[in-house]
Design a protein around this nucleic acid. Sequence first.
RNA 1: GGUGGCGUGUCCGAGUGGCCGAAGGAGCACGCCUCGAAAGCGUGUGACGGUGCAAGCCGUCCGUGGGUUCAAAUCCCACCGCCACCGCCA
Length: 443
Amino acid sequence: MITSWHTSSKEGNAMHDARALVQLGDEAVRRLARKGYTLDLPAIEELLHRRNQKIALGDELRAESKKLAASVGQAAKSGADVSELKIQARALKEQIADVSFQADQAAHELSELMLTIPNMPVDEAPDGFSEDDAVEVRRVGDVPDFGFEPKDHVDLGEALGILDLARATKLSGPRFSVTRAAGAKLERALAAFFLDLHTTEHGYTEFSVPNLVNTETMTGTGQLPKFEEDLFKTGVGSRELYLIPTAEVPLTNLHGDEIIDAETLPYAYTSHTPCYRSEAGSYGRDTRGILRLHQFSKVELVRICEAETSRDELEKMLSHAEACLRKLGLAYRVIMLAAGDTGFNSTLTYDIEVWLPSQDKYREISSVSDCGQFQARRAGIRVRDKQGRKQFAATLNGSGLPIGRTLAALLEQNQQADGSIRIPDALVPYTGFSMIKADGTPA
RNA sequence: GGUGGCGUGUCCGAGUGGCCGAAGGAGCACGCCUCGAAAGCGUGUGACGGUGCAAGCCGUCCGUGGGUUCAAAUCCCACCGCCACCGCCA
């Protein structure tokens, strides 16, 4: 029947979002202001109103059209002349097409606007817009006290012959890495160690997922439409796919457009995947080493739960990410990000920062976020409780952990005066060696 | 990439122009029966949107998008997906 504005669940969900925002009113304006976003509430109200008005009118006309069509059928059966009725019906149809078009237009406009509005931070997140405004939650582990000048992971890795950045540049350009021998083995060991830890001790289910996803998937978790420039895009013929910047994208979208039975929640998912990021707009930063690459691998954690429990789930996930560093004996701290520094998707974010001796400071190694119902709304992840009530789920994600940055921290924190590296006990079953000797050979 | 077949509700499955949101069955929920259970019987059982305090009313959805028609699950076109065989391939 002509056109329909009900078919896209993405848009339907955006509508829901709009109504929620309007209901919150000044509260929404206040909360978003803490993130540095100026919410144009009147514009949303106007679009919502216009859309609803057009839909109501369209529905009315359509009901009339259905009745008319039925009466044409009746009349034709009884042999009456229906040509007059047909002309009427056709005119009505044109009107419907016109109104539908207007409704679609308003819905699209609203949807486009809604998709660019960031998630609202919770009040618990401290004020401010930079990392300096973050609140330190705790420090864990002793910052190593070397009796010598510690080297950075590049000097260490290249001297050991386990890291080769020059050749990586030859292959692909800047911001790529090659690891070799004990270095490559170490990466594989870290990934396996993290996955085993999460699946056996923390109750996560391991997944192997696509690393190329479509536009809808990227929109579901909030990478699109706003952050396209951060992504690598591939295309063959008319087909366009994006390389995932994190396994959060495929893992969270696994349940897109589904209604989940509440009793089966929470879901705890993990996956080890490569992550691809353009790093547009970070030209001068972290140009040395393997801290910021176009491709790195990471073990990601995702939890899906009911909205009411997400705050507790966030603490659980944080502890799971922290366990990775504790077991490796790496010094780190946990901070709670300021409202204005939390990501587009997030209501509340903890960062875990690992100690990096060469920089004499803590550097981000994991970001653990409660996205509330934000992503679920975009992706259409709903929950049905025992009473049959439906609501959007809550989603959380966190790194647990990235392989490259962990490797860098491990090399730097565990270096010895002669340039050899001590392997943490927990990792030895995975590496098969407990030392990388100064000449690069495992022992 | 080629040829053929197919895409209907939680599932199976009927439906070739109006009486179809859609028969029938299964599943599930509730009720009856029963000491209890099974069987049997009865009732109910999709999503989304608009409107309303609510009951309700209205609209949309039969892979997706277009088209034909007063009227489409049903006819036409394109695309997507699935199955089978062939080709190619890690």
